[in-house]
Design a binder for these strands. Sequence first.
RNA 1: GGAGAGGUGGCAGAGUGGUCGAAUGCGGCGGUCUCGAAAACCGUUGUCGGUUUGCGCCGACCCAGGGUUCGAAUCCCUGUCUCUCCGCCA
Length: 429
Amino acid sequence: MHDIRAIRENPAAFDAGLARRGLPGMSAELLAADAARRANILAAETAQAAQNVASKEAGSAKSAGNAAEFERLRGLVGEKKAEIALLNDAASVEDARLRDMLMRIPNLPMAEVPVGADETGNVEVRRWGTPRLMDFAPREHFEIAGVKPGMDFATAAKLSGARFVVLKGAVARLQRALAQMMLDVHTSEHGLTETWAPVLVKDDAMEGTDKLPKFAEDSYQTTNGWWLIPTSEVTLTYSVAGDILDAGALPIRMTAHSQCFRSEAGSAGKDTSGMLRQHQFEKVEMVSITTPETSLAEHDRMTRCAEAILERLGLPYRTIVLCTGDMGFGATKTHDLEVWLPGQNTYREISSVSVCGDFQARRMNARFKVPGGKPEFVHTLNGSGLAVGRCLIAVVENGQQADGSVDLPAALYPYLGGKTRISAAGALE
RNA sequence: GGAGAGGUGGCAGAGUGGUCGAAUGCGGCGGUCUCGAAAACCGUUGUCGGUUUGCGCCGACCCAGGGUUCGAAUCCCUGUCUCUCCGCCA
């Protein structure tokens, strides 16, 4: 959420930031709402002050036994009360209107983010690994002979419908191995704290991490009002909501492996085959809470943490910086990691690492303080480290052999009981 | 699911209708003392919003939201969270 005071002080800069995102200026409208809101507050508080005075006087009159004066003041208070009720209603309407407007405006990009309208404006920053030469036509993950027995879309459809999958045997084991490996690397080598949190959360948590109000249709809600998290960014980030953290405790670095749920509204027809885009998937998420001074360096660090997983698995990837038009709602800068998928003959997103500045912190009132100083909003960052399902796809597509078997990365052997490949018949061996 | 108890400032803990943003203790900060420190003593110490050039002034906040009352931390209702006991349960 944006700071209305900052907008008040420099509306032109705010509109310029929106323009870089390809959005029209909104400061005039915001400032009008802000002025209306403040006028209402002033009127309501003035009336309130008058009522408080009259109440006090009424008390004195009563204890002095002056019944007539008491009755007069009682009447006055009654009038004020009615007046205040109206003014307060108006004030809270204006306040809610302004807040809702602010909540729906995306974060502004950092100065260094390239300007662009859509994904064609993204800029590649580095590339790692070389796609393996295959002397056969590479297959997509769901077409590989060794994978097919363990990836059952028919049963998933029976259970849940489209965009779900049932994994079995070697493939299920492989997904578990990947998640375990990621958590182990992040905790023991990258210094993140392993965390396990609910996947059902309240409105506040979704709002604080900017999934609401604007993107309600992208997530699922239970009949009693809980939301199923679209990513554990929600739980990890919101864990510091309302806190005033000791500056010495920062950065806080967390990681979690969780189920994620997305309605994929608006994705109809996209990636309909295979398990690239599912309503329920597994992800290992990374979240950092930092000071404003360190957040940009932390962004690069977090990007490296995600890249390290791909490198360990020997998966070719490229890292891009998203342009202003392609960034997510809460981000000020985003790196996407795209992994090589031979079956699609292209790079596909497997991780997105964003620095959100104080955008989420302001929404959820998460602050830090140096001893003796004033509380200040923290900066928040989040990134996939990695999307486990997509990583599974990348591993089998890149490791596929002409005969339909799959060679697995050595980094996973310890997590697979020493097994090294999936046979063309689908057996781990 | 049933029964009961409770949510007050950084912490502990008073306050059960008015002058209470809230006693007291601890902690924090500043000072006196000291070569320095400790102890002791003195002072000070919440957040948010509005308004003002500024001093300041005003408003809100004792879990949240409603209500009663001239007036609510205090009374009533609802919600929520915590604790205890019972039941159920992976």
